[in-house]
């Protein structure tokens, strides 16, 4: 249909009733194009998350068994979520940082739940290009700031999951979560 419009004027001639014909032509072409475009939306939208995908957005896990300094990784919405039981020294280091030095300034207190400051819950996806940073296994490198180190392009995160060095633009994301009770976390 789109091809018909530009070629038309050569054939419109100079006959009487031209104005009305052109109006009719414009209307018809416009209606056809709008109809086609309206059909595109269902096609595109079918690629968005389906209802079952959207509904599976909560994950519950227990943090009771995590020893100090250790962490676990759970799956939420197809992505890893880190839960690390921070040591007192790590918490102190995170709180002491001068916010002015940070690329993406955020207070440590805003990145944890009150009365659960020892438990840091993060989406374990590097904000650079989506790799999973190292730092969950005892043998992993954690970078200079004691948090996480991304092996892909060398981004380093601190013990609050904030970006400190490397190409990543932002801190590790804190997912929406809550403590169902003292030992159970629900993400999503």
């Amino acid at each position: 249909m789109a091809n018909t419009a530009p070629a038309h004027p050569t054939h419109a001639g100079g006959a009487a009733g031209e104005t009305r014909r052109d109006f009719l032509l414009d209307m018809t072409v416009a209606t056809g194009v709008v109809g086609g475009v309206m059909m595109v939306w269902p096609l595109i939208h079918s690629m968005n998350p389906a209802a079952d995908t959207l509904s599976l957005s909560t994950t519950e896990f227990s943090v009771a068994g995590i020893a100090e300094g250790m962490g676990i990784t759970v799956l939420w919405r197809g992505k890893p979520v880190f839960a690390r039981h921070r040591t007192a020294a790590e918490i102190e280091a995170a709180q002491k940082v001068n916010l002015a030095e940070l690329r993406d300034p955020a207070k440590d207190a805003d990145r944890v739940k009150k009365d659960h400051e020892n438990m840091l819950v993060l989406v374990g996806v590097c904000t650079h290009l989506g790799c999973i940073p190292l730092g969950m296994k005892p043998t992993d490198p954690r970078g200079e700031f004691g948090g996480w180190f991304c092996p892909c392009h060398g981004s380093e995160y601190d013990t609050s999951g904030r970006i400190r060095r490397g190409p990543a633009p932002a801190n590790l994301e804190v997912p929406p979560y809550s403590f169902v009770n003292d030992t159970t976390v629900r993400v999503g």
Binding site: S46, A51, D52
Partner: peptide, 12 residues
Amino acid sequence: RIMRDVNYGWLL
């Protein structure tokens, strides 16, 4: 799943 959950899946 296409019929029930995918957006406009029933239409397609």
